[in-house]
Design a protein around this nucleic acid. Structure first.
Length: 286
DNA sequence: CTAGGATCCTGTCAGC
DNA sequence: TGCTGACAGGATCCTA
């Protein structure tokens, strides 16, 4: 679930918790699920985090001993910092406010001033130890395309020609084509650009493609302003539960509700095996 | 090379 | 109250 804005929100939030002075050293690494931590846990004990970076949906902790942690949350990963304050981001569920560790806790990084819990219901995500100098050579990182802010419409347009026959929605979910979009922002960006998710990628004009890149930027910026999915918008100040999708989503999870642009009912269907939301009047198939 | 489906896991929800 | 199948905000692997 966590897409670029959620990961960026986590990065910003954790900077204030785990970077050197705030978090202190890593005192221990407890791996509760073997497949969630790749590498030697002891190789990061005693080190401090000096920098937090993000590339697409991947999050990197750079340490002061030449190592880095590359993390990917995949569908259900979350980071929850429990120290003097609590910060949580990623897949929004009750783990944000639950007692930890719990049965979905996969890794615990114990710092001098708090604990960082990596929770992941479906175990698709991971934390991996690599040499800091090798991060860019990591198989996953190396393949990533540019993020929408660095990509011109024409560049995407040219890439689309190689995926000619595939539905545009599936193509923009491919991180080697354009990086950062997941199922939510793919639907939202297509709505912004008024493109039907099942249109063949090769059928888009340059103008439509440019609008799509613009849409990707705009919808992810809107989400960033709303703070991604964090403990703050999961639990409102009055204690009731919030839903961060309500803060920016025009189509995602709005099936049956009215399109805010034209009033038509939003439809949910399936494209490339993924749940897909769109407005049948704003986004015509042909 | 591409397209499309299965797969990795756990949990929830709708329907019977 | 079960049980069953579908589905879940990701990416990879396999097949055609």
């Amino acid at each position: 679930m966590p897409e670029l804005p959620e990961v960026e929100t986590i990065r910003r939030g954790l900077v204030g918790c785990v970077v050197r002075e705030k978090g202190g050293k890593i005192l221990s690494v407890k791996v509760l699920e073997e497949k969630s931590f790749i590498g030697e846990p002891s190789s990061v004990v005693g080190a401090s985090v000096v920098k937090m970076r993000r590339r697409g949906k991947a999050l990197m902790f750079d340490l002061d001993n030449g190592k880095s942690l590359i993390c990917h949350l995949r569908m259900t990963g979350q980071f929850i910092w429990v120290g003097e304050e609590r910060f949580a981001g990623g897949h929004p569920n009750d783990n944000f406010i639950a007692d930890l560790p719990n049965k979905q806790t996969r890794v615990i990084l114990e710092f001098e001033k708090g604990k960082l819990f990596f929770n992941d219901q479906r175990k698709f995500g991971f934390i991996k130890v690599v040499e800091t100098g090798e991060v860019e050579k990591d198989a996953f990182i190396a393949k990533l395309a540019k993020e929408p802010w660095e990509m011109e419409g024409r560049e995407l347009y040219e890439k689309l020609q190689r995926h000619n026959g595939a539905p545009i929605k599936s193509v923009i979910l491919d991180q080697t084509v354009i990086c950062g979009l997941g199922n939510i922002y793919a639907d939202e960006a297509l709505f912004y650009a008024k493109i039907h998710p099942r249109r063949k990628a090769g059928s888009l004009s340059l103008a439509e493609t440019s609008k799509l890149v613009e849409g990707a930027r705009v919808v992810m910026e809107r989400s960033l302003e709303a703070g991604g999915s964090t403990i703050r918008n999961y639990v409102k100040s009055d204690g009731t539960k919030g839903d961060y999708l309500e803060l920016f989503a025009e189509v995602f999870n709005r099936q049956g509700q009215s399109c805010r642009r034209c009033g038509e009912k939003i439809v949910k269907t399936k494209v490339g095996g993924r749940g897909t939301h769109f407005c049948p009047k704003c986004q015509k198939e042909c």
